[in-house]
Design a protein around this nucleic acid. Structure first.
Lengths: 106, 106
DNA sequence: TCGTGGCGTAAGTTTTTTCTTACGTAAAGT
DNA sequence: ACTTTACGTAAGAAAAAACTTACGCCACGA
């Protein structure tokens, strides 16, 4: 799943909270839903979006469905931002050094 | 600006592209707009959202407006994800160690 | 001072997202 | 078998986001 899809999935406040909820423990769909004031189906749909984006893993146990964050997804997100950002930082660093050199020349 | 606002700002494809465009150089609003097929006012609005979220800095030169990414904003985003994520990794590590201890006990 | 280029804002429409109610299905309990 | 629990999905309403055209405001060059 592309990074933008993950960002989009995280951009909704309810989904953002859901991710926090299942960040370090599996939780069944119903338990997640009970934490919010919106309807259970609405939460179910949010869980679907998060799963589709690759942010959550779903596991079925009997009639229950357990959700938990996919660690790899977050690592991927982190790597993306780092990789996206560090080239810029290097360029800025080079620019700063160039300015320093100019100052010395003056 | 809260982190969620930044994520929301990045969640739109056009804005995502705009950020790439002004990641390492200042660009005037018109130059940014010309890169997209949507109308100039639409792009102007996107620039506004990005600025509001604290992702871009705006500088006026004459009648022009130059935009560029605010480095601090991205650092903040990075720090947030790292801080958000690493506690979980530590917990997992502890859990793994606990399991190891159990195995030894057996 | 008159036009022209550069750009944001307003108002309203279209598109997308989010939510609700109704319904269907499968597993578990009785 | 019958009922209840646990969920997802469908369909459509409601809310939010994105886009368009129209307009207005500087700054600048003629």
């Amino acid at each position: 799943m592309p990074v933008l899809a993950k960002i989009r999935a995280l951009s909704n406040e309810t989904r953002f909270e859901i991710v926090k909820l299942v960040r370090d423990r599996e939780l069944e769909a119903g338990a997640v839903a009970r934490r919010f004031k919106i309807s259970r189906p609405a939460v179910s749909q949010h869980l679907g979006v998060l799963r589709e984006a690759g942010l959550l893993r779903e596991r079925r146990v009997g009639s229950k469905r357990l959700y938990v964050v996919r660690a790899e997804a977050f690592d991927e997100l982190l790597e993306f931002i780092e990789g996206y950002w560090s080239p810029r930082l290097q360029r800025l660093k080079s620019a700063a050094e160039a300015i320093e050199r100019d100052k010395v020349k003056k």
